[in-house]
Each structure stands twice: as C-alpha cells, then as structure tokens.
Amino acid sequence: MFALVVRFDCRDEAAAARFDELTAAVVEQITEHEPGTLSYATSAVESEPLARVFYEVYRDRDAFQAHEDAEHVRRFHEAKDSLLTATRVEFLRLGPAKG
C-alpha cells in the first residue's frame, strides 16, 4: 500500500466554499473511476476553518500515479490552485493500523 496526507490552506471563506465544491465533485469521480484508490477521506480542520486535510491510501504507487494522471484529478488541481495559500504533502510509511 501507498499512503499520503495533504493539507490545503484556503485563501478565505469564499475560497474554502469553492474548494469544498471542487472536492465533492472530484471525490465522486475518484469513487467511480479509480479501483486502485482504497481510501480517499477529506476533512475540514475543526479549529482552523480555512484548512482541509486529505488522507489517501492507494493499492500501490502505480495506483497513485494513475490517480494523479486521471483527467478529473488534473482538472481539480488546476481549479484549486488559485484558492490556496499553502499546500503540504506528506508521504507515509504505513505502520500498525486497524481498518
């Protein structure tokens, strides 16, 4: 398995609302078209209303690359960039877990 966590910091409340709309649309496409994406969980940060965190788990690095190359993901990346002030990506080495 291959996993990562991504944090996005939105510019303002309007940008956060638009980011959430884009996220809902891309998650729908990921669910329908990406069998190698095992988990794709998106969250708002309770204490930071402009922050979003994605937890992503893929079957392997090839599945991750297929995700990155997918047209719906490329469109999401292009549309979201102007809404953000920062993005932080952390690639994970999986340890003991449940689920």
Results as ranks from 00 to 15, higher is better:
30 I>F: 04
21 E>Q: 14
34 E>R: 07
72 H>W: 02
13 E>N: 02
46 E>A: 07
49 P>A: 05
34 E>Q: 11
79 A>M: 08
30 I>T: 15
80 K>F: 02
18 R>K: 11
76 F>Y: 15
39 S>A: 13
68 E>A: 14
45 V>P: 02
70 A>T: 03
62 D>I: 11
26 V>T: 10
32 E>V: 04
38 L>A: 03
75 R>M: 06
64 F>R: 08
35 P>G: 12
55 Y>Q: 11
37 T>P: 12
14 A>C: 07
31 T>Q: 11
54 F>A: 11
42 T>S: 08
80 K>C: 15
16 A>E: 07
12 D>K: 01
56 E>P: 12
53 V>P: 02
45 V>M: 05
42 T>H: 01
70 A>D: 07
76 F>M: 03
29 Q>E: 15
42 T>Q: 06
52 R>F: 03
74 R>N: 04
17 A>Q: 15
69 D>P: 03
80 K>A: 15
52 R>Y: 04
48 E>K: 10
13 E>C: 00
28 E>F: 01
31 T>D: 15
62 D>W: 07
65 Q>L: 13
55 Y>A: 13
23 T>S: 08
20 D>W: 00
25 A>P: 12
47 S>G: 09
15 A>D: 04
68 E>L: 13
55 Y>C: 15
42 T>R: 01
39 S>T: 13
48 E>M: 08
64 F>E: 07
70 A>N: 04
24 A>C: 10
34 E>K: 06
36 G>K: 00
14 A>N: 10
79 A>W: 05
43 S>Y: 07
40 Y>K: 00
58 Y>M: 03
30 I>L: 06
35 P>H: 08
18 R>C: 07
51 A>V: 03
59 R>P: 13
69 D>W: 01
33 H>M: 10
46 E>G: 09
42 T>F: 02
50 L>T: 10
74 R>M: 11
60 D>P: 13
13 E>F: 01
15 A>C: 08
46 E>H: 14
14 A>L: 12
68 E>W: 07
47 S>E: 03
16 A>P: 02
55 Y>T: 12
41 A>P: 00
81 D>E: 15
